[in-house]
Amino acid sequence: MSIEEYVVSQAIKGDGQAFGQLYEEHFDKIYRYIYLRLGNQAEAEDLTQEVFVKALEAIGSYKWRNLPFASWLFRIAHNQIIDYLRKQGKVEKVDWDDNIAHIDGPNPAFIAEQKLEVEKLADKIEKLSPAQREVISLRFGAELSTAEAAKALGKSPGTVKALQYNGIAALRKMMLGDR
């Protein structure tokens, strides 16, 4: 039994400390993933909280299937986002704001250049297909591996790799088109 499986099994039995450990481990990744999908801080905060509320409510019925626990959390997060957007009558968009796009680095000129590049990139992300955007969010926001992202999305690793490649290529192309 892996450490994660043990911690999850304890959380299933109602051990609050075990659930707290899972929360600490995944909180930032879930927040980043939701932020990348919605591009809004307040919405990302609300939905991140809702994801963990749902997870706590449902942890008792969780069944270990040799999948990373993160897959389950991202599935909840994904469903929360879909429900939220449906209720709001919104389509997915990424609204990159300066409050979040602060990049640390030793060289201010480099930082400015990078920031500009990233902002340009960010403007283009919302033009990606929903599937590409989801894969990019899981890979770059949640830091899941290709295999983990594939399990979380219920797609094959090959499909995820293709979506990832095409997504990045599309972003690059859009950026070049601006020049």
Partner: peptide
Amino acid sequence: KTSSALIQKSAAIQAT
């Protein structure tokens, strides 16, 4: 290069 920029951007996203 595009990916590298994305990695940096994502790492900067932190909950307050």
